[in-house]
């Protein structure tokens, strides 16, 4: 762990990733103190300063009802990070469980579980979430549900592949010979060997979950106004191009910065932990 941290901080690119992610996390956590207009996270109207380009007062301009865009972006980071953490916290254990069982048990269980996984994987990612959101009410919780439903199969596939090759290893046989239970072999013996790959994938996926979640709200199927969300901010601003360019450019860049940061770290982790899946 310490070795990993040292290597992570020595490479300039992964260092940049750490800095970007730290900046995003800190600005989300301390938004109340950093944001120049904390009250603008909600439904506030200020028609004196509406739809203005970047000025000294509003460094990223103001939106159509005069709210400070910079403040709203800081609060939007909160939603994005929360969504990413919750989705991965639910999807990873489900996928890991399914993958372990299918990979270790083999036979009918393997066929049934992996075909189920294939079904979810053969609906293009965003389409499944969009279809689910069409049925559910567009709220933050339902958006999390929809994204989770399309996310767990990837972990099932990943863990399944590793488990299948680990199952043949000597240490698994040794555990089976002394009479260890299926649960012990899968969770205590095989699972630890899947962890590097899982952790790497989770880091990379933080960025992708943010992308998918913002895509949902871009289509109006995610978090609803007045809650600030990067996707819906871009969607709203896109109607006022090119004159009010700041409405789309800054929230768009905010997504890019956050996801780029996570991807830089994930890339470095993949190289360090040697989990090339």
């Amino acid at each position: 762990m310490r070795r990993t941290t040292v290597i992570l901080l020595r490479n300039p690119l992964s260092m940049l990733g750490v800095v970007l992610v730290a900046a995003v996390v800190i600005s989300a956590a301390l938004a109340d103190y950093i944001a120049p207009f904390p009250e603008h996270r909600g439904a506030v109207v200020d028609f004196v300063h509406f739809n203005q380009g970047p000025t000294a007062r509003n460094v990223m301009g103001t939106d159509l009802v005069g709210r400070d865009l910079f403040s709203r972006i800081l609060y939007a980071f909160r939603i994005s990070l929360l969504l990413g953490v919750v989705v991965l916290a639910i999807a990873t254990p489900i996928g890991t469980f399914v993958g372990l069982l299918a990979g270790y048990l083999g036979g009918r269980a393997e066929f049934a579980l992996m075909r189920l996984t294939d079904v979810f994987l053969s609906i293009p990612p965003l389409v499944l979430a969009i279809a689910m959101m069409g049925v559910l009410e567009p709220t933050l919780l339902n958006a999390m549900l929809a994204v989770t439903a399309m996310w767990w199969p990837w972990y099932a596939r990943l863990v399944y592949n590793i488990t299948r090759s680990e199952r043949e290893e000597g240490y698994v046989l040794a555990a089976e010979v002394i009479g260890a239970s299926t649960l012990h072999v899968t969770f205590r013996e095989i699972l630890p060997n899947c962890l590097p790959a899982i952790i790497t994938k989770m880091t990379l996926d933080m960025g992708f979950v943010i992308i998918i979640a913002s895509s949902l709200s871009f289509l109006g199927l995610g978090v609803q106004p007045p809650t600030p969300d990067l996707g819906s901010m871009v969607a709203e601003g896109a109607r006022y191009l090119p004159d009010s360019w700041w409405l789309t450019v800054f929230p768009g860049l905010a997504i890019l910065v956050a996801v780029f940061g996570f991807n830089l770290i994930g890339d470095a982790l993949r190289e360090i932990l040697g989990a090339d899946q």
């Binding site: 871009f218 969607a235 896109a238 191009l241 450019v249 996801v259």
Partner: peptide
Amino acid sequence: SLLGVSAPSFVWAVMLML
């Protein structure tokens, strides 16, 4: 190429259009 995968396509669409 890492930058390319780091934003949803609607962001690229809006930026390219602009």
